[in-house]
Nucleic acid binder design. Structure first.
Lengths: 107, 107
DNA sequence: TTGACAGGCAACCAAATGGTTGCATATTAA
DNA sequence: TTAATATGCAACCATTTGGTTGCCTGTCAA
């Protein structure tokens, strides 16, 4: 998995909104996704392309329409593999601090 | 929580690396964090400022040194609140597809 | 078959981003 | 007290990014 592409795709508010919309109703077309947004269709197209590159959205051509399906896998991979590193909120924060200060003063 | 700041802070590879380093050893100084990186100290300073703004890193002045402590809370908040929306990998992908196609053909 | 609808492509633009260099300031150790 | 160390601040630069407009192509329905 290219975690960089995923993180960068998620960095933009508009793209997170698109994912939110697809989450509410999966398989929407470009035009549907554009409805009510303060953005041109072309801007949305670009965002969707970035989401596709990050494998967060899978497109499906259906005649002249293009349906978009959310793919939760990369997000869960990040959650499992990267975010987990940063600990179930641990009680260690203060003890980290103490340790670090002791380390410093020993030098 | 300002989830936008957090997502954007996490979007950069160098910043994720800094978090990785702090995760390995918490409470490092600026100079320590710079060691072995292909970046000037000032670039690292900027990255740390962004991480601080996103509340992912908490600084502590200690004499002329500045110690940096990772704060896992915002990351976990994202994991819990936002990423969870995108489902424990569900079996629904194919059935979503079917549903969407049926919906289309009904129109 | 011909218009209308859904989408694609490309050029262009302003603003944000990641990085640099140069200099200033504050602590600490000799 | 003075030199070295640790960090801060500001201006500047190239590239990336998010957005636009204009036009082209493919598909469906009347």
């Amino acid at each position: 998995m290219d975690d960089d592409a995923v993180f960068r795709a998620l960095a933009d508010k508009s793209r997170r909104l698109l994912l939110d919309r697809l989450h509410r109703r999966n398989g929407q077309t470009l035009s549907e996704l554009c409805e009510g947004l303060e953005m041109t269709r072309q801007a949305v197209t670009k965002h969707l392309a970035i989401l596709e590159d990050a494998n967060l959205v899978a497109p499906l051509r259906q005649g002249r329409e293009k349906l978009h399906f959310i793919n939760p896998v990369p997000i869960n991979e990040i959650a499992d593999r990267w975010i987990d590193k940063f600990d179930r909120p641990r009680l260690g924060a203060l003890s980290d601090l103490k340790k670090a200060l002791e380390e410093k003063s020993r030098k």
